[in-house]
Design a protein around this nucleic acid. Structure first.
Length: 566
RNA sequence: CGGGAAGUAGCGCAGCUUGGCAGCGCGCAGCGUUCGGGACGCUGAGGCCGCGGGUUCAAAUCCCGCCUUCCCGACCA
């Protein structure tokens, strides 16, 4: 491609609304242009990068035996009603009403793929099967962010697997999981597969693929010793209940703590009476409703945050009135056993100490409350949101919290969808109808562009790994308008590279060398070949690596061969 | 949805306090010089000053309402 022909205008300054480096550089380099908040056009250079990534996914998925297809982006609303996700995902669904009916702009494709392939997978002989697509998805993001990182319209590569039983599903899952490792390796971004929460997609076992990054919106806990890694929403801390013999301890004391309805207020209020408590000495007692509608109280140290287990929800403020014994703001674990409230304690609550807690009386807290004397715990578990240094649940080593971007997510859906959709079934060898055991697998392609851009960016601009670069070689002439010799040589090398199948972008513009260097560096072409009078005089051309900055002098008559094999 | 900031040429910004010709840099077009690190000179094109209303002889500027965008949080995967 001749740069004089390229639809591209690099910007010396980034738009003021671009915050993240990747966003700034992708706009400055002419890869993307904003059409509306969270909606971007992929310009020719950006499209090249996206196609490179798509190619990697296609190769690895094809290798794993998955078959590419293309599902519709517009779905009739009925298929979303059948699985109940119309309400479950309503915050992000983009609904459209037309003369022809109601449709949703699809945020994901589980329903559509089942509708589409079920009749082609009617027998156990048709299984296993894996299909995938690379498609635009739509989500009504409340807050699009950081350019391509979080958008309303984005490209995702999503695969769906269909198996006859759980064992087969697991083996398929493993196969696709391996493809994921290869795909991200080829993108050269650091990443970690972590255990995760299934969210609105549903299902049981699942993994997120997290790329550590400064623009990450997620955190995962990672154990440097044994390799345990889990999203902060799913991560558990290690620990166990500490058994301590009950001896004579100080008596519990009631403290008048008017309007001290939170941990901070209670600590201040009690300390004003001469004690020296910290939030870590308080018990945080959180009332939740379990999946059966029963009350469960979680008890944890006051300086920690409760990780609400999936299926549970916090009791709403208005609901407190329904339970007279719950005094909002002054709740504590004392006496809960007699009131039919199950108490689940974090392991750390078994530490041998007198706790302070809500007294279950308006405007009162107690101090010196001892486990097994003043309050009782029915069940012990790790119920806190993990923080830096917490012990690993497997090996007890201190864990690290890492900021990261989710670039992929794989799910063992099991029967989550096929139990709701009768067509998601096949006839087994026994002649009976059985539901599919499904899996689904997604990679945020446009998000990956942002993550790679962000990770490799330097002060001069982008640096694309060679497998995803829009062009492999940047060829530039210096002083070609003045020197016919330079122009002819550069033209000839360009033609030869094209003939040899090298992806080359040729800066043939009538501009000074500074601009050309700056532009090719900004757009991050991996190798830069400079053709100027200096090179003709020495019969050697300079080839620079954008990634590591190294330069090599290559004899003119070997230059094409060198660039082909580099 | 809550908090904060901002909308003036394609991009970055000044002008607004104190109302009076719509400006600067980059980019763009033409001519010339220059040519191994965003070089220079001359000439030129480009504007619903976010939108609507109000005050005024006169509004980018003052007042009211709305819209949009970005950041932090909530939500979300």
């Amino acid at each position: 491609m001749r740069m004089s022909q390229l639809v591209l205008k690099t910007l010396r300054e980034a738009p003021s609304d671009a915050e993240a480096i990747s966003h700034q550089l992708l706009v400055r380099g002419g890869f993307i242009r904003r059409l509306a908040s969270g909606i971007y056009t992929f310009m020719p250079l950006g499209m090249k990068v996206l196609k490179k990534l798509n190619r990697i996914v296609e190769e690895e998925f094809d290798n794993a035996g998955a078959q590419q297809m293309l599902l519709p982006a517009l779905h009739p609303v009925e298929i979303w009603e059948q699985t109940g996700r119309l309400t479950k995902m309503e915050d992000v669904l983009m609904l459209t009403d037309t003369k022809a009916g109601r449709f949703v702009l699809a945020p994901t494709h589980e329903e559509a793929v089942i509708q589409s392939v079920s009749s082609d997978l009617s027998s156990y002989k048709d299984l296993p099967a894996v299909v995938y697509q690379i498609q635009t998805k739509f989500r009504d993001e409340a807050r699009p962010r950081f350019g391509l990182l979080r958008t309303k319209e984005f490209v995702m590569a999503d695969a769906y697997s269909f198996d006859a039983d759980q064992l087969a599903m697991r083996s398929t899952y493993q196969r696709i999981y391996q493809s994921y490792l290869k795909i991200f390796d080829r993108c050269q971004v650091p990443f970690a597969p972590v255990e995760a929460d299934a969210g609105a997609i549903g299902g049981d076992v699942n993994h997120e693929f997290m790329a550590p990054s400064a623009i990450g919106e997620d955190h995962f806990a990672s154990c440097p010793s044994c390799g345990y890694a889990a999203n902060i929403e799913a991560a558990r801390a290690g620990g166990r209940r500490i058994e301590t013999p009950l001896v004579d301890h100080e008596e519990t004391v009631m403290h008048h703590t008017p309007s001290a309805t939170d941990i901070k207020g209670a600590v201040e209020s009690i300390n004003s009476k001469g004690l020296a408590l910290t939030p870590a000495d308080m018990l945080k007692s959180m009332i939740t409703v379990d999946p059966n509608g029963e009350l469960t109280m979680f008890v944890l140290p006051g300086d920690r945050e409760l990780k609400v287990p999936s299926g549970y929800r916090l009791l709403e403020a208005e609901e407190f009135e329904r339970y007279g014994f719950l005094v909002k703001g002054f709740v504590g674990p004392m006496g809960m056993g007699n009131l039919g409230v199950k108490v689940v304690g974090d392991f750390s609550v078994s530490a041998p100490k007198g706790w302070s807690a809500g007294a279950n009386v308006a405007d009162y807290h107690v101090s010196g409350a001892w486990l097994d004397r003043d309050f009782f715990v029915d069940e012990w578990d790790s119920v806190v949101v993990v923080k830096d240094g917490d012990p690993c649940p497997r090996c007890s080593e201190g864990m690290k919290l890492v900021r990261a971007v989710e670039i992929g997510h794989t799910f063992q859906l099991g029967l989550a969808y096929s139990s709701k959709l009768s067509i998601a079934s096949f006839v087994g060898a026994d002649g009976q109808t059985h539901p599919f055991w499904m899996g689904c697998y997604g990679i945020g392609m446009t998000r990956l562009v942002a993550v790679i851009a962000e990770y490799f960016a330097d002060e001069k601009g982008l640096r694309w790994p060679s497998e995803v670069a829009p062009y492999k070689v940047g060829l530039m002439s210096i002083g070609a308008t003045r020197s016919e010799e330079v122009r002819e040589l550069a033209d000839r090398i360009y033609k030869d590279l094209m003939g040899a199948g090298v992806e080359v972008i040729y800066d043939d513009r009538d501009l000074g060398p500074g601009v050309k260097f700056a532009d090719l560096e900004l757009i991050g072409i991996p190798y830069l070949c400079v053709v100027g009078q200096r090179g003709i005089d020495s019969q050697k051309l300079e080839v620079r690596s954008r990634m590591d900055g190294s330069t090599t002098q290559v004899p003119i008559d070997e230059i094409v061969g060198y660039l082909v094999n580099i």
